[in-house]
Protein backbone atom coordinates (compact mmCIF):
# COMPACT_ATOMS: atom_id res chain seq x y z
CA UNK A 1 0.00 0.00 0.00
CA UNK A 2 1.33 3.40 -1.04
CA UNK A 3 -0.15 6.25 0.89
CA UNK A 4 0.39 9.80 -0.26
CA UNK A 5 -0.51 12.20 2.51
CA UNK A 6 -1.13 15.89 1.69
CA UNK A 7 2.06 16.20 -0.30
CA UNK A 8 2.95 19.73 -1.37
CA UNK A 9 5.94 20.83 -3.43
CA UNK A 10 6.88 24.29 -4.61
CA UNK A 11 9.63 25.28 -7.05
CA UNK A 12 10.33 29.00 -6.61
CA UNK A 13 6.93 30.61 -6.95
CA UNK A 14 5.40 27.66 -8.81
CA UNK A 15 3.21 25.38 -6.74
CA UNK A 16 3.77 22.05 -8.47
CA UNK A 17 1.89 19.86 -6.01
CA UNK A 18 -0.86 21.16 -3.78
CA UNK A 19 -1.75 18.82 -0.91
CA UNK A 20 -2.04 15.64 -2.94
CA UNK A 21 -3.60 12.76 -1.03
CA UNK A 22 -4.13 9.30 -2.52
CA UNK A 23 -3.85 5.62 -1.71
CA UNK A 24 -2.63 3.01 -4.14
CA UNK A 25 -3.33 -0.58 -3.18
CA UNK A 26 -0.94 -3.51 -3.49
CA UNK A 27 -1.02 -5.19 -6.89
CA UNK A 28 -2.79 -2.30 -8.52
CA UNK A 29 -1.95 -0.78 -11.88
CA UNK A 30 -2.63 2.87 -11.29
CA UNK A 31 -2.91 5.34 -14.14
CA UNK A 32 -1.90 8.88 -13.30
CA UNK A 33 -3.37 11.17 -15.87
CA UNK A 34 -2.97 14.89 -16.33
CA UNK A 35 -2.10 17.52 -18.89
CA UNK A 36 1.44 18.80 -19.29
CA UNK A 37 2.50 20.71 -16.20
CA UNK A 38 -0.16 19.18 -13.98
CA UNK A 39 2.45 17.79 -11.58
CA UNK A 40 2.61 14.13 -12.68
CA UNK A 41 6.39 13.94 -12.91
CA UNK A 42 6.89 15.86 -9.69
CA UNK A 43 4.51 13.52 -7.89
CA UNK A 44 6.34 10.46 -9.24
CA UNK A 45 9.69 11.91 -8.14
CA UNK A 46 8.37 12.61 -4.67
CA UNK A 47 6.94 9.09 -4.57
CA UNK A 48 10.28 7.64 -5.66
CA UNK A 49 12.00 9.51 -2.83
CA UNK A 50 14.04 11.62 -5.24
CA UNK A 51 12.42 14.91 -4.28
CA UNK A 52 11.64 15.87 -0.71
CA UNK A 53 8.14 17.32 -0.38
CA UNK A 54 7.74 20.70 1.38
CA UNK A 55 4.99 19.22 3.50
CA UNK A 56 3.32 15.84 3.77
CA UNK A 57 4.89 12.46 3.06
CA UNK A 58 4.70 9.31 1.01
CA UNK A 59 4.63 6.03 2.91
CA UNK A 60 5.12 2.47 1.72
CA UNK A 61 3.38 -0.03 3.96
CA UNK A 62 3.61 2.65 6.64
CA UNK A 63 7.29 3.57 6.15
CA UNK A 64 8.12 7.06 4.81
CA UNK A 65 10.26 6.82 1.67
CA UNK A 66 12.39 9.90 2.20
CA UNK A 67 15.98 9.05 3.15
CA UNK A 68 15.21 5.33 3.42
CA UNK A 69 17.45 3.32 1.07
CA UNK A 70 15.82 0.08 2.27
CA UNK A 71 12.46 1.27 0.91
CA UNK A 72 13.96 2.73 -2.25
CA UNK A 73 15.56 -0.61 -3.09
CA UNK A 74 12.06 -1.93 -3.64
CA UNK A 75 11.11 0.97 -5.94
CA UNK A 76 12.08 1.34 -9.58
CA UNK A 77 11.44 4.64 -11.28
CA UNK A 78 11.58 5.04 -15.05
CA UNK A 79 11.77 8.76 -15.77
CA UNK A 80 10.63 10.17 -19.10
CA UNK A 81 14.23 10.99 -20.01
CA UNK A 82 15.65 7.56 -19.29
CA UNK A 83 19.12 7.35 -17.85
CA UNK A 84 21.67 4.84 -19.11
CA UNK A 85 25.35 4.62 -18.32
CA UNK A 86 27.24 6.59 -21.00
CA UNK A 87 28.43 4.42 -23.88
CA UNK A 88 27.06 1.22 -22.39
CA UNK A 89 25.01 -1.72 -23.64
CA UNK A 90 22.08 -3.53 -21.99
CA UNK A 91 24.23 -6.07 -20.15
CA UNK A 92 26.46 -3.37 -18.61
CA UNK A 93 23.41 -1.44 -17.40
CA UNK A 94 21.85 -4.58 -15.95
CA UNK A 95 25.09 -5.41 -14.10
CA UNK A 96 25.28 -1.85 -12.76
CA UNK A 97 21.67 -1.96 -11.57
CA UNK A 98 22.21 -5.33 -9.95
CA UNK A 99 24.70 -3.62 -7.61
CA UNK A 100 21.87 -1.36 -6.42
CA UNK A 101 18.87 -3.69 -6.41
CA UNK A 102 19.20 -6.81 -4.24
CA UNK A 103 16.64 -8.81 -6.27
CA UNK A 104 18.05 -7.81 -9.63
CA UNK A 105 17.90 -10.60 -12.22
CA UNK A 106 20.51 -9.93 -14.93
CA UNK A 107 19.50 -13.09 -16.81
CA UNK A 108 15.90 -11.87 -16.90
CA UNK A 109 17.06 -8.54 -18.37
CA UNK A 110 18.82 -10.42 -21.19
CA UNK A 111 15.82 -12.70 -21.74
CA UNK A 112 13.55 -9.67 -22.01
CA UNK A 113 15.99 -7.95 -24.37
CA UNK A 114 15.67 -10.93 -26.68
CA UNK A 115 11.86 -10.87 -26.34
CA UNK A 116 11.90 -7.21 -27.35
CA UNK A 117 14.34 -8.00 -30.18
CA UNK A 118 16.88 -5.56 -28.80
CA UNK A 119 20.57 -6.13 -29.58
CA UNK A 120 22.17 -6.65 -26.16
CA UNK A 121 25.67 -5.79 -27.29
CA UNK A 122 24.90 -2.54 -29.08
CA UNK A 123 25.33 0.80 -27.32
CA UNK A 124 21.98 1.96 -25.99
CA UNK A 125 22.69 5.52 -27.12
CA UNK A 126 22.51 4.26 -30.70
CA UNK A 127 18.98 2.90 -30.15
CA UNK A 128 15.91 4.75 -31.41
CA UNK A 129 13.77 6.57 -28.85
CA UNK A 130 11.21 3.76 -28.81
CA UNK A 131 13.92 1.14 -28.32
CA UNK A 132 15.36 3.16 -25.43
CA UNK A 133 11.94 3.18 -23.80
CA UNK A 134 11.71 -0.59 -24.17
CA UNK A 135 15.20 -0.91 -22.71
CA UNK A 136 14.25 1.22 -19.71
CA UNK A 137 11.17 -0.94 -19.13
CA UNK A 138 13.02 -4.25 -19.29
CA UNK A 139 15.84 -2.97 -17.08
CA UNK A 140 13.19 -1.89 -14.56
CA UNK A 141 11.23 -5.14 -14.65
CA UNK A 142 14.40 -7.15 -14.10
CA UNK A 143 14.89 -5.28 -10.80
CA UNK A 144 11.77 -7.17 -9.59
CA UNK A 145 10.55 -4.06 -7.79
CA UNK A 146 7.52 -4.03 -5.52
CA UNK A 147 6.64 -0.62 -6.90
CA UNK A 148 7.35 0.38 -10.49
CA UNK A 149 6.82 3.95 -11.67
CA UNK A 150 6.67 4.83 -15.35
CA UNK A 151 6.67 8.42 -16.53
CA UNK A 152 5.10 8.53 -19.99
CA UNK A 153 6.86 5.26 -20.69
CA UNK A 154 3.87 3.74 -22.47
CA UNK A 155 3.30 6.69 -24.75
CA UNK A 156 4.55 6.04 -28.23
CA UNK A 157 5.25 2.30 -27.98
CA UNK A 158 4.19 0.51 -31.13
CA UNK A 159 1.17 -1.84 -30.82
CA UNK A 160 3.24 -5.05 -30.75
CA UNK A 161 5.53 -3.71 -28.02
CA UNK A 162 2.55 -2.43 -26.03
CA UNK A 163 1.06 -5.90 -26.09
CA UNK A 164 4.33 -7.44 -24.84
CA UNK A 165 4.71 -4.80 -22.13
CA UNK A 166 1.11 -5.31 -21.01
CA UNK A 167 1.67 -9.07 -20.75
CA UNK A 168 4.84 -8.50 -18.72
CA UNK A 169 3.07 -6.14 -16.35
CA UNK A 170 0.16 -8.56 -16.00
CA UNK A 171 2.60 -11.33 -15.10
CA UNK A 172 4.46 -9.28 -12.48
CA UNK A 173 1.22 -8.13 -10.90
CA UNK A 174 -0.27 -11.64 -10.85
CA UNK A 175 2.87 -13.41 -9.66
CA UNK A 176 4.45 -10.96 -7.25
CA UNK A 177 1.71 -8.42 -6.52
CA UNK A 178 3.84 -5.72 -8.08
CA UNK A 179 2.23 -2.28 -7.99
CA UNK A 180 2.66 -0.07 -11.04
CA UNK A 181 2.00 3.63 -11.37
CA UNK A 182 1.89 4.77 -14.96
CA UNK A 183 1.79 8.49 -15.73
CA UNK A 184 0.52 9.63 -19.06
CA UNK A 185 -1.19 12.58 -20.67
CA UNK A 186 -3.16 10.25 -22.89
CA UNK A 187 -6.16 8.37 -21.54
CA UNK A 188 -6.12 5.97 -24.45
CA UNK A 189 -2.69 4.73 -23.40
CA UNK A 190 -4.01 3.81 -19.96
CA UNK A 191 -7.55 2.62 -20.57
CA UNK A 192 -6.84 -1.04 -21.25
CA UNK A 193 -4.12 -1.71 -18.67
CA UNK A 194 -4.98 0.20 -15.49
CA UNK A 195 -7.51 -0.78 -12.85
CA UNK A 196 -7.46 2.60 -11.13
CA UNK A 197 -7.16 6.07 -12.58
CA UNK A 198 -6.31 9.32 -10.83
CA UNK A 199 -6.64 12.68 -12.51
CA UNK A 200 -4.11 15.31 -11.55
CA UNK A 201 -4.90 18.92 -12.33
CA UNK A 202 -2.97 22.00 -11.26
CA UNK A 203 -1.10 20.01 -8.65
CA UNK A 204 -4.11 18.35 -7.00
CA UNK A 205 -5.87 15.03 -7.49
CA UNK A 206 -9.29 15.92 -8.88
CA UNK A 207 -10.61 12.45 -8.62
CA UNK A 208 -9.50 8.86 -8.27
CA UNK A 209 -11.53 5.80 -9.04
CA UNK A 210 -11.77 2.17 -10.03
CA UNK A 211 -12.10 2.07 -13.83
CA UNK A 212 -14.78 -0.61 -13.95
CA UNK A 213 -16.77 1.21 -11.30
CA UNK A 214 -16.51 4.43 -13.27
CA UNK A 215 -17.63 2.65 -16.39
CA UNK A 216 -20.51 0.80 -14.76
CA UNK A 217 -21.90 3.97 -13.24
CA UNK A 218 -22.18 6.17 -16.31
CA UNK A 219 -23.96 5.46 -19.59
CA UNK A 220 -24.99 7.12 -22.77
CA UNK A 221 -28.65 6.56 -23.52
CA UNK A 222 -30.28 7.10 -26.85
CA UNK A 223 -34.05 6.93 -26.95
CA UNK A 224 -36.78 7.83 -29.40
CA UNK A 225 -40.38 8.47 -28.40
CA UNK A 226 -43.67 8.79 -30.17
CA UNK A 227 -44.23 11.83 -28.01
CA UNK A 228 -41.39 13.22 -25.95
CA UNK A 229 -42.06 12.82 -22.20
CA UNK A 230 -42.57 16.19 -20.54
CA UNK A 231 -40.08 15.43 -17.88
CA UNK A 232 -37.18 13.03 -17.80
CA UNK A 233 -36.10 12.65 -14.20
CA UNK A 234 -35.87 9.81 -11.76
CA UNK A 235 -34.75 9.44 -8.17
CA UNK A 236 -31.50 7.54 -7.94
CA UNK A 237 -30.45 8.43 -11.48
CA UNK A 238 -28.25 11.39 -12.21
CA UNK A 239 -28.78 13.06 -15.56
CA UNK A 240 -25.45 14.65 -16.41
CA UNK A 241 -26.52 15.94 -19.77
CA UNK A 242 -29.54 15.63 -22.03
CA UNK A 243 -29.60 16.77 -25.62
CA UNK A 244 -32.55 16.25 -27.89
CA UNK A 245 -33.66 16.62 -31.45
CA UNK A 246 -37.31 16.19 -32.24
CA UNK A 247 -38.54 13.14 -30.37
CA UNK A 248 -35.09 11.67 -30.04
CA UNK A 249 -32.88 12.27 -27.04
CA UNK A 250 -29.29 11.49 -26.13
CA UNK A 251 -28.48 11.57 -22.43
CA UNK A 252 -25.49 10.86 -20.23
CA UNK A 253 -26.91 9.19 -17.15
CA UNK A 254 -25.25 8.21 -13.89
CA UNK A 255 -26.53 5.16 -12.02
CA UNK A 256 -26.75 1.38 -12.19
CA UNK A 257 -27.35 0.01 -15.67
CA UNK A 258 -30.41 -1.96 -14.57
CA UNK A 259 -31.99 1.12 -12.98
CA UNK A 260 -31.37 3.17 -16.13
CA UNK A 261 -32.91 0.44 -18.31
CA UNK A 262 -35.89 0.07 -15.99
CA UNK A 263 -36.57 3.79 -15.91
CA UNK A 264 -36.44 4.26 -19.67
CA UNK A 265 -38.48 1.15 -20.26
CA UNK A 266 -41.19 2.72 -18.07
CA UNK A 267 -41.33 5.66 -20.51
CA UNK A 268 -42.13 3.15 -23.31
CA UNK A 269 -39.77 4.47 -25.94
CA UNK A 270 -40.01 3.42 -29.58
CA UNK A 271 -36.30 3.02 -29.61
CA UNK A 272 -33.83 2.65 -26.79
CA UNK A 273 -30.14 1.95 -26.67
CA UNK A 274 -27.66 2.05 -23.83
CA UNK A 275 -24.03 2.55 -24.78
CA UNK A 276 -21.07 2.31 -22.40
CA UNK A 277 -18.88 5.41 -22.35
CA UNK A 278 -15.23 5.46 -23.20
CA UNK A 279 -12.95 6.56 -20.41
CA UNK A 280 -12.42 9.83 -22.24
CA UNK A 281 -16.15 10.56 -22.34
CA UNK A 282 -16.44 9.67 -18.66
CA UNK A 283 -13.70 12.13 -17.81
CA UNK A 284 -15.33 14.88 -19.82
CA UNK A 285 -18.65 14.22 -18.09
CA UNK A 286 -17.03 14.11 -14.64
CA UNK A 287 -15.15 17.31 -15.34
CA UNK A 288 -18.29 19.08 -16.45
CA UNK A 289 -20.08 17.85 -13.37
CA UNK A 290 -17.29 19.38 -11.28
CA UNK A 291 -17.60 22.68 -13.10
CA UNK A 292 -14.41 22.44 -15.14
CA UNK A 293 -14.13 23.09 -18.82
CA UNK A 294 -13.16 19.66 -20.11
CA UNK A 295 -11.60 21.05 -23.28
CA UNK A 296 -8.44 22.05 -21.49
CA UNK A 297 -7.82 18.63 -19.93
CA UNK A 298 -7.63 16.27 -22.82
CA UNK A 299 -6.05 16.54 -26.16
Amino acid sequence: MISIQSVAKTFGDVQSLDKVTARIGEGSIFGLIGSNGSGKSTLLRVMAGILRPDTGEVKYDGIPVWDRPDVKKRIFYISDDQFFLPGSDILENARFLSSLYPNYDVEEALRLARAFNLPEKRKIQSFSKGMQKQTAILLGLAAKPDWLFCDETFDGLDPVMREIVKKLFAREVAERKMTAVIASHSLRELEDICDHIGLLHKGGILFESDIDELKSQLHTVQAGFEKLPERIRCDGLHFVRITGRGNFITAVVGGEEEAVRAYFSSLSPLYFELIPLTLEEIFIAEMEARGYDSGSFLE
Binding site: I29, A170, R171, V173, A174, E175, I193, C194, D195, D212
Partner: peptide, 18 residues
Protein backbone atom coordinates in the same frame (compact mmCIF):
# COMPACT_ATOMS: atom_id res chain seq x y z
CA UNK B 1 -5.57 -19.39 -13.34
CA UNK B 2 -5.82 -15.63 -13.04
CA UNK B 3 -2.15 -15.40 -13.86
CA UNK B 4 -2.34 -17.58 -16.98
CA UNK B 5 -5.36 -15.77 -18.36
CA UNK B 6 -3.85 -12.34 -17.58
CA UNK B 7 -0.69 -13.21 -19.49
CA UNK B 8 -2.56 -14.83 -22.36
CA UNK B 9 -4.98 -11.95 -22.90
CA UNK B 10 -2.55 -9.20 -21.82
CA UNK B 11 -5.04 -7.72 -19.40
CA UNK B 12 -4.87 -6.63 -15.81
CA UNK B 13 -5.00 -9.60 -13.36
CA UNK B 14 -7.18 -7.54 -11.03
CA UNK B 15 -9.80 -7.33 -13.76
CA UNK B 16 -9.78 -11.10 -14.15
CA UNK B 17 -10.02 -11.55 -10.39
CA UNK B 18 -13.05 -9.30 -10.40
Amino acid sequence: SVRALACELAINPNTIQK
